[in-house]
Design a binder for these strands. Structure first.
Length: 602
DNA sequence: GGTCGTATCT
DNA sequence: GAGATACGAC
């Protein structure tokens, strides 16, 4: 566990804290010993049991720094629990929790006076055991403070009462408990224990993932912090933590559903409405089946512990307000689908007619041109009238940038169009030119066209089924052959914008002329309508993000749509729609209204 | 008293 | 802006 300069529990280790907390339990009653062991193990603590106080003391002496905390019964035949407490306090400087069936004040006081950091009454509750890590944390805080004040260290180690732990062994301490004078101080510290602010919880991807999984499991309309907390099974997490996070999460989702709300987007990207009266810029595409396995999902709520995360959100748009959106519409999707009735997350808020669609891409911590991994995390936005999942860029929270030193690509602040030429043969370019902040200038991302001769490289690079997309414009409008597209991602660190240059197209001169209308996936650009061959198009880059597959292309990995993790961030009640849409898209003709806006953020 | 959602604070 | 905290409602 590590607490950074901001006082935030920040490192990935914090995700596991206090898992593995080394607890020594001392109780002469073997039944209780077993029960406690089981309960503590349920908290993911590392438990050692001892039925004799003397044995426990020997063990502690033998394995210095082998334990983080001791839980001891008060009444034991071989040694009084208070005596053990004294020894531990003097020799090992470990936090000791006393427990007893006797809750008499004088005994509790005696325990505290002897240096116990807590006094538990039997039967001990799970919640109490869950929280014992706090004593360890607290003790560590005081120790570091002592060292700091002693050394006059100018380095800022604390904020809000948080402390920094040694990397790799956050609990290790050879420092013994202070002698008598410091003991008084300790007692006082224990007494003002509540005044020490808790370390802030950073909702990393993993943690958020657990959160989302719990939400999905419970059902969005039934969720409550307590239920989520129980399902998450993260010992150190509190209901308040979850409540706070849930509040933000709901806020986040609700914003996605307010198209005209300036706050309804990240990075200041507006989420316009979409009107069916608009002749959307659409194109269609047929997706192939998934190809490769994908990696673990990432929460798309804007957190990341080890990855740069981007997120898209579902949007709708009105004519003239097409900024920054790519949307999908299934022209033949049955209106009666139940999945269209998705409601907004907040149970207390009714009449939300849309469901957010999020899409995220994750880049490795280090923007490595040679090893770029994309992950798409798809949830869904959903409207009463068949409109579609859309993508919106999302900016990585600044905090995460700070914590992990990421650079990222900002979202376009101006309307950016996926130009029709992106569907043209090479050089196809989807320019997502952006306005960027200082940090954003560090990265430039583009997907470059490939040429036919590169096609065989698909296999060289370990992606046996390179994504293809036919170029309907070519096929129909120009009476040429469908084109195959293949994405290549290139990160250019010195350009202040993000650019996606579409797939290059492999001319296959195949059967465009033999396409039947119902076999075509319509692609409409601003100025033209195009078609994709069902046979040729396996994977679209932009237009096919619903099917982003875990196809590794020149070190680009696309998420497998079918991976359940991919939707871990999607409220369960929204999943049907997504899956339906995918299934549906795989089988039928589609329209993809293309609005201009960035697609990916890195 | 426990839990929740929301407003507000840090 | 993220997370903590306060507080009223249930």
């Amino acid at each position: 566990m590590e607490i950074n300069n901001n006082g935030y529990v920040s490192s990935p280790r914090s995700d596991s804290f206090p898992i593995g907390l080394r607890v020594l339990v001392v109780d002469d009653d073997p039944t209780w010993l077993k029960i406690l062991e089981k309960m503590l193990k349920r908290c993911s603590y590392e438990v050692t049991t001892c039925c004799l106080a003397r044995d426990a003391l020997d063990l502690l002496r033998e394995r210095k720094d082998g334990f983080d905390i001791v839980i001891s019964d008060v009444n034991m035949p071989d040694m009084d629990g208070f005596k053990l407490l004294e020894h531990v306090g003097l020799e090992m400087d470990l936090p000791v929790i006393m427990m007893s069936v006797d809750g008499e004040t004088s005994r509790v006081m005696k325990g505290v006076q002897h240096g116990a950091c807590d006094y538990l009454l039997k039967p001990v509750r799970m919640k109490e055991l869950k929280n014992i890590w706090q004593h360890v944390l607290r003790k560590k805080i005081h120790e570091v403070r002592d060292i700091e004040s002693y050394e006059g260290n100018e380095e800022i180690l604390f904020r809000n009462g948080s402390e920094r732990f040694e990397e790799g062994n956050f609990l290790s301490s050879g420092k013994k408990r202070k002698e008598t004078e410091n003991k008084e101080c300790d007692d006082q510290e224990y007494s003002d224990f509540s005044s020490v602010k808790k370390a802030r919880v950073v909702w990393s991807v993993d943690l958020h993932q657990k959160f989302v999984n719990a939400v999905n499991q419970i059902g969005f309309d039934k969720v409550g912090p307590k239920k989520i907390l129980d399902l998450m099974n993260v010992p150190w997490l509190t209901r308040e933590n979850v409540a706070s996070h849930l509040q933000k999460y709901r806020l986040y989702l609700s914003r996605l559903q307010k198209p005209n709300d300036p706050k309804s987007s990240f990075c200041g990207i507006k989420q316009p409405d979409f009107s069916q009266k608009d002749p959307p810029t659409t194109f269609a595409h047929k997706s192939s089946s998934p190809v490769l396995q994908n990696t673990a999902a990432n929460g798309s709520f804007g957190y990341t512990s080890s990855n740069l995360l981007v997120e898209g959100a579902a949007l709708e748009t009105h004519e003239g307000d097409l900024n920054g959106i790519i949307s999908f519409k299934s022209v033949t999707e049955p209106i009666s689908r139940k999945t269209l009735n998705g409601d907004v997350p907040s149970p207390r808020k009714a009449n939300n007619s849309q469901i957010g669609f999020t899409h995220s891409l994750v880049l490795p911590e280090q923007l490595d041109v040679n090893n770029i991994s994309f992950k798409a995390n798809i949830s869904q936005k959903h409207s009463w009238n068949r409109e579609v999942p859309i993508m919106q860029m999302k900016q990585l929270p600044k905090q995460e940038q700070k914590l992990y030193g990421y650079t990222h690509l900002a979202l376009p602040s101006q309307p950016n169009k996926i130009q029709s030429e992106s569907l043209q043969p090479s050089p196809s370019s989807i320019n997502l030119g952006t306005s960027v902040g200082e940090r954003d200038k560090a990265c430039h991302l583009e997907i470059k066209p490939l040429h036919l001769e590169d096609k065989n490289d698909d296999f060289k690079h370990g992606f046996p089924t390179a994504p293809h997309i036919s170029n309907p414009l070519q096929a129909d409008a120009e009476n040429t052959s469908p084109q195959e597209f293949r994405p290549i991602l290139r990160i250019n660190t010195d350009l202040p914008c993000m650019k996606l240059q579409g797939y290059n197209q492999h001319c296959t001169n195949t059967n465009a002329s033999t396409w039947k209308p119902d076999q075509r996936n319509q692609i409409q650009g601003n100025e033209s309508t195009s078609y994709c061959s069902q046979h040729e198009s396996h994977l679209g880059l932009l237009q096919d993000y619903l099917f982003i597959e875990d196809v590794e292309l020149n070190n680009i990995v696309f998420m497998n749509y079918h991976d359940p993790d991919m939707f871990a961030d999607v409220p369960a009640h929204l999943l049907d729609k997504v899956r339906f849409t995918n299934d549906y898209l795989c089988e039928s003709t589609l329209e993809y209204p293309i609005m201009d806006q960035g697609l990916f953020i890195a």
